[in-house]
Design a protein around this nucleic acid. Sequence first.
DNA 1: CAACAGGTTCTACTTGCATCGTACCTCCTG
DNA 2: CAGGAGGTACGATGCAAGTAGAACCTGTTG
Lengths: 106, 106
Amino acid sequence: MPDEDGHPRPDEMDLRTVLHALADPLRFAVIAQFLREPEEAERTCAYFQLPVSKSTTSHHFKVMREAGLLRMVDNGNSRSVVLRRRELDARFPGLLALVGAEPAHD
Amino acid sequence: MPDEDGHPRPDEMDLRTVLHALADPLRFAVIAQFLREPEEAERTCAYFQLPVSKSTTSHHFKVMREAGLLRMVDNGNSRSVVLRRRELDARFPGLLALVGAEPAHD
DNA sequence: CAACAGGTTCTACTTGCATCGTACCTCCTG
DNA sequence: CAGGAGGTACGATGCAAGTAGAACCTGTTG
């Protein structure tokens, strides 16, 4: 079972769920953006400036967290998210590479 | 532009579209099933016995064809579909392997 | 020719999901 | 303590997409 923040362990990740998370253009763009940042980069949700409301942004990040794509990092002050790069590469080899290979869009 | 049957060329295939096509459980199951068959296997739509009506089945196969996953083969007699394995492996390396690695479900 | 099998198309229904506004929470800073 | 920044939770809404039924098409087989 996922931890208290809804993060699945790698063996709990479901490919269909991950694909669904990536099928949305905004979520795809967030992951693609992360892949252009240094590894282990921590970013606030606000950093991505998605063209939707705060609550919608929060919803999208929740979907990505629950799929296993992102991990929430609580810094006391503000929370950040981190791409779970190593775990995803181990669980779904090649998947992030495909996302990163896709040209940025919109 | 796609051909008269709606098949995109590999360079026209869009990863988001492909991921969306694979995010549906029935469509995912069809591709996973194809990966358990011999390469170049031709199958009728009816072969998969999806638990939905004929028109819904036709809809799902259309989505997969238009995403580039399947190619329609007209045998005069009955039509069949073929997984575009080589082209997909070239365009999205590793993607089909991920689908094939996922345990069958339901 | 009639009947059937396999697919497609069209229309309609219904479910899912992205979206938003509001209210609320937590931590920091005047 | 009051206010703001960053996020979350909940309820409502509107559109996209999965679904089914009916009519139709094509090729095969009695």
